[in-house]
Design a protein around this nucleic acid. Structure first.
Lengths: 342, 342
DNA sequence: TGACCTTGCAGAAACGTGCCTGTCAACGCG
DNA sequence: CGCGTTGACAGGCACGTTTCTGCAAGGTCA
């Protein structure tokens, strides 16, 4: 390449990177030759020399034997999408790395930093990364004393309390909870908030737990919840598919929604806008979280190192639909025209 | 590191990589010292030396201004998940790279090969990659004469024809189609197959198109389709949310499913197992596709170069539920116990 | 006992950058 | 005319591996 342009390697490097003291004529000449040859500087050599790879790890926790649960929860997809977009805008790319991946894969890729989704307590991957001096930003408040650089999370307690109040306002007498058996902070914080609320208002807790990574278990747990002798007249489901599962269970027991059963679930899916009836959902705003996580991480990579952990709380959004209102509002979407009256 | 173990750099490299002629004692000693120091070989240096980075690009097409559509379609999430898993099992990691990303990001990462999802005709990214001599495997039959190394796809024509026959068998007299306005091969092939089928059986085509990347447009298009004077008595929707959209539209027009309207949509979502009624879906088997794509790519990276493009067709699966059967079968899932009769 | 092979390691080149230093000519100035 | 200054490059080192080659010590065998 240098020979083809008739200049030295230094001149090529300076010309392409806009450094050094070169006349514009030389710069243009070098760039033209580079374009003509289709020359691309070696990413590996640059990384080796500069110590920066432009790569950010996206680490997802594992459920059961599966490498990670992307599917069931639109949350992960949305979050990853926003994170990819935000990283790209600042010249970085995302590498998907499950937490329990083979060690050789982790050491085979040069990362500038890592985003960790919902790290478990004493996560060995996180410890290893900070030991290497890499910045680590977590989605989800780190459990225990995990030494992350920064973290972003929702206020799950406030969200749950808000939903329970919303349901009580709509006339719920006994509110049930569909929760998970895993020990991540989301499940833990939400369940604790529910129990505290029950204690405060003097209601006996009514909840069922199931392994959230198993898509079939949710329907069974929803059925269990409505089959109890102390059957709730309102339910909040912590996971995405709980809405349809609970709707189906309610139908099986002849319960009308929202007349006999008020319903809210945490979901990012748009299907709940068109179910029968539409279901009130809590959105955790995964796009804002994905964006914030990446911004914090890249700031830590490039910027000044403030060694205090930075915490950022993203507000949730309750999208109120028919399923949680005793007096259902008029449907907001009306058909454009109707060939026969309804 | 070499100094700490009291051996040469060569010996360290040989010991950690299992090469060279070293006694087991030396090998163990070097590894022990490496563990104690927390030594990790530099990925950048290895990549520079060997020419292999262990990184595979995952390129997703872009819709509108958004970097890529991950969300609306569980397909992408499932496919990416399977691809990640398959790559990991063979020691590779996946880098997410939108097709329309800044050029500097593409050239900043050393890739061994790339998976391209649904490449458009004359995709400049693909051309650039093959010019660099990198293997490219596409998910979706490449349009035009795109010179990919290999591709994996479903037989979309056969799938559509199968669904139309299935609906006709169930008693459909006039089958409608909900399709997209974009020019990707999936939409194109499916629509053409529908039109051919109509011609064969002598039915006038009844279809509505909408921009599939817009989540709101689907509901409007579903409404349009059922508002037509030549209203169909069966509909196949090409995209994931079409099922709930069509169910909602049918309710608005007072049509019962499946009595007045038979329904099938293409989806990987499990929500359709619990809608009212459950909706028959076509699964494109994204896990098998993601796995196959990665296997083909890594084979091309590591193995012998067969310069003929390798084509692989993954069969689809029709999951028949109530919405496409005039005589609905007994529900297969029954509640564990019922406190009051239904 | 010398030729030859095996074992156990060390030396050194090369991968392609980025950056620091050096060189040489031109130029302004007292 | 001598000298410092500046512009425009070239040289060369370092990044941390992998890998080829080399080399001494010890063993085998004719």
């Amino acid at each position: 390449m240098a020979a083809a342009a008739g200049v030295s390697i230094t001149t090529v490097s300076d010309a392409l990177n806009g450094k050094g003291r070169l006349p514009d004529a030389t710069r243009r000449h070098v760039r033209e030759v580079a374009d003509r040859l289709g020359y691309r500087p070696s990413a590996a050599a640059r990384t080796l020399r500069t110590g920066k790879s432009g790569l950010i790890g996206l680490t997802v926790t594992t459920y059961g034997d599966e490498p990670f649960t992307f599917t069931e929860f639109a949350y992960f997809a949305e979050m990853a999408r926003a994170a990819t977009s935000a990283a790209l805008a600042r010249g970085y790319a995302l590498v998907i790395l499950p937490a329990t991946s083979r060690h050789d894969v982790w050491s085979n890729v040069a990362l500038d930093g890592t985003v960790v989704i919902d790290p478990s307590d004493q996560d060995p991957v996180v410890s290893e990364l900070v030991r290497q001096g890499l910045p680590v930003v977590s989605d989800g408040r780190p459990a225990g004393s995990l030494p992350v650089t920064a973290w972003v999370d929702n206020d799950h307690e406030a969200a749950v309390l808000g939903i329970l109040d919303h349901l009580a306002d709509a006339g719920a007498r006994r509110i049930g909870l569909l929760t998970g058996t895993s020990t991540d902070t989301y499940t833990h914080l939400s369940t604790t908030a529910y129990l505290r609320w029950c204690e405060r208002v003097g209601q006996d807790p009514v909840y069922e737990s199931y392994p959230a990574h198993d898509p079939c278990a949710g329907a069974v747990a929803a059925d269990r919840l409505l089959a109890r002798p102390d059957r709730p007249d309102a339910v909040y489901g912590l996971f995405d598919p709980n809405g349809t599962d609970l709707l189906a269970a309610a139908r099986r027991y002849g319960m009308r929604v929202p007349e006999d059963l008020l319903l809210v679930c945490c979901s990012e899916s748009t299907v709940y806008a068109n179910t029968e009836p539409p279901v009130t959902t809590l959105s955790l705003k995964p796009r804002r979280i994905g964006t914030a996580v990446v911004q914090l991480l890249i700031d830590a990579i490039e910027g000044v190192e403030s060694d205090l952990p930075i915490e950022q709380v993203i507000p949730t959004e309750l999208i109120v639909r028919t399923s949680s209102q005793r007096r259902p509002p008029r449907t907001t979407v009306s058909p454009p025209r109707s060939p026969e009256g309804k």
